[in-house]
Computed example of a mutant assay.
Amino acid sequence: MSRQVVIKRLNTTMLVKIGLLSAITIVMGTTGLGFIPIQPFKLTIMHIPVIIGAILEGPLAGGLIGLMFGLFSIYQNLVNPTVVSFAFYNPLVSVLPRILIGVSAYYVYKLFAKFNESVGIAVGAALGSLTNTVGVLGMIYILYLSEYLAAKGTTAKVVFSAGALNGSIEAVLAAVITLPIVLAVNKMKKK
């Protein structure tokens, strides 16, 4: 992609929207509003601004908002470390999956929106959310499995079963939250 094409796609309005949605993600992370503690899980909704940005503005915007989410994830693990923070210092774990949230959400949305706009939004949001879960857990599995399991003091079956259940709940939550927001923004755009 040439530099002129990227500059043409990144206009001032889009940059403002990317900045706003990135800021929302960071505020959600720093205040704790991006996490819903439902025992035994800590569901995240921090990826929802990434999904909304991708569906409304395209994969480039979604990818950039995801980049900000991923960079914030590294920062958050540096300032508030946990026993598994070592895995999140690696951008392949903390940044790459977050960039791919926006890319996958957009293209899944476009595929399904051909048939029904609401279905496209919901499925795009759910699969964008699952991209985060599968991407992060997949990279941990590939890069840090034994160290991660030792730090958690558990087995791979427990970690990945919990991750699958947690990720499924987050995917449904992402679809439920994203759908009305995107529909409302699209309705306002038409006025």
Rank of each mutant, 00 (worst) to 15 (best):
R3L: 13
K8S: 15
L10I: 06
L10T: 07
L10Y: 08
T12H: 03
T12S: 14
T12F: 13
T12V: 12
T13R: 11
T13V: 13
V16E: 14
K17I: 06
G19W: 13
G19E: 11
S22T: 11
S22C: 10
T25M: 04
I26W: 15
I26Q: 13
V27C: 15
T30E: 15
T31S: 13
G32A: 08
G32Q: 03
G32C: 02
L33E: 10
G34L: 06
G34E: 06
I36D: 12
P37E: 06
P40H: 04
F41I: 02
K42W: 15
L43A: 03
L43G: 04
L43C: 01
T44M: 07
I45D: 14
M46A: 08
H47Q: 12
P49T: 08
V50L: 10
V50E: 14
I52N: 02
A54R: 07
A54E: 09
I55P: 01
I55F: 01
G58S: 00
G62M: 12
G66N: 10
G66V: 07
L67I: 09
M68Y: 12
F69E: 05
L71T: 12
L71P: 09
F72C: 12
S73V: 05
I74R: 10
I74T: 03
I74C: 04
Y75D: 06
N77G: 12
N77I: 09
L78N: 12
V79S: 03
N80A: 14
V83S: 15
V84I: 15
S85F: 10
S85L: 10
A87R: 05
F88P: 08
Y89N: 14
Y89P: 10
L92N: 09
V93P: 09
S94R: 03
V95Y: 07
L96I: 14
L96H: 00
P97F: 11
P97Y: 12
L100W: 07
L100K: 00
S104P: 00
Y106E: 10
Y107L: 11
V108A: 07
Y109L: 00
L111Y: 15
A113S: 09
A113C: 01
N116V: 01
E117Q: 14
S118K: 13
V119M: 08
V123P: 06
S129D: 09
L130G: 04
T131P: 09
N132G: 10
G135E: 07
L137K: 02
L137T: 03
G138R: 02
M139F: 13
Y141W: 10
I142W: 04
Y144H: 06
L145K: 05
Y148Q: 11
Y148G: 11
A150Q: 13
T154G: 06
T154Y: 04
T154A: 08
A156M: 14
V158S: 07
V159T: 02
V159P: 01
F160L: 09
G163T: 07
L165R: 00
N166F: 12
G167Y: 05
G167A: 04
I169C: 02
L173G: 02
L173N: 02
A174P: 04
A174H: 03
A175C: 04
A175K: 01
V176N: 02
I181G: 01
V182Y: 00
L183F: 02
L183D: 03
A184C: 03
A184Y: 11
V185A: 03
V185K: 04
N186L: 13
M188R: 07
K189N: 14
K189T: 05
